[in-house]
Design a protein around this nucleic acid. Sequence first.
DNA 1: CTGATTTTGGATTAAATAGTCTAAATATCC
DNA 2: GGATATTTAGACTATTTAATCCAAAATCAG
Lengths: 147, 147
Amino acid sequence: MFSTSCHYGLQAIIYIALHFSEGKNISLTEIADEQEIPRHFLSKILQLLVKHKLLISMKGPTGGFSLSRPPEEITLIEVVEAIDGLDMFTQCGIGFKKCDDNHPCPIHHDYKVVRDRIQKLFETKTLLELTEDVKSGESIVSLGKAL
Amino acid sequence: MFSTSCHYGLQAIIYIALHFSEGKNISLTEIADEQEIPRHFLSKILQLLVKHKLLISMKGPTGGFSLSRPPEEITLIEVVEAIDGLDMFTQCGIGFKKCDDNHPCPIHHDYKVVRDRIQKLFETKTLLELTEDVKSGESIVSLGKAL
DNA sequence: CTGATTTTGGATTAAATAGTCTAAATATCC
DNA sequence: GGATATTTAGACTATTTAATCCAAAATCAG
């Protein structure tokens, strides 16, 4: 569905959001180690999220990454948009370039319904909701390590 | 959602299904030209579909490709499975390897619902349904050329 | 100010996907 | 049987994505 870059970006920002209340920056190394993401690769992805103003970065000791806005104001689709773009939410299910509402491919109407639902899901899920689920024990991130 | 190979495969088999009633084989060149798919690349993809017994191929003049079974017995998911595999229908929405019903990621339950709907869509759509929609003018394939 | 720590950015490599080319095999038609 | 048309198979190239490496810039702590 999404690229592995996008997966890493989502995982990383969720990790950062989980520690947002602690008030300090989270270092690249910590995220990479905890979430088992290749360090240098993750570096590139976080730079993207900084450029798209989802994260703030600080250099030096005590430096690291932090959310640019409170977690209830950041939705998952912003992360997807920054990394993979939104093509997935407009593209035809069988790849026809000219498929649209006026010239639908044979699965267009059915496909559009579920594609729109995925989009809505990512548009409405905020980082706060996700972290609350994790903190309450309802869901896990990655290896299920303790918080 | 799917690879371009998979898109090409779906487009090609729909084209073949559309001409199934004519009883003759459809050549690689015809499909590639009509659907604007790179010829040699499509060749590889159709070979895959032959290996997976979705298509039958014949060499020589009057040769070409044809459905191995009647179009009402072939579903889209068989094509997807042959080309991209079914990973997409089991993979976690944010890429966690260990995400499942017992250890759900924070979007698992919501994501699973729509992922399953996409799967069901591709499982239930037969080539016959698609071609009927196209023949009735309800939907188009590619450039909307006349049949 | 100095040294340690961290992000940044660019260059580089590796792997997967997309696409091309050519020769061989096979079937048809005359 | 011979010419022709077609798929098959393998090698090859190109592009995109994934991942690595390292030096430079910035920041904090002492």
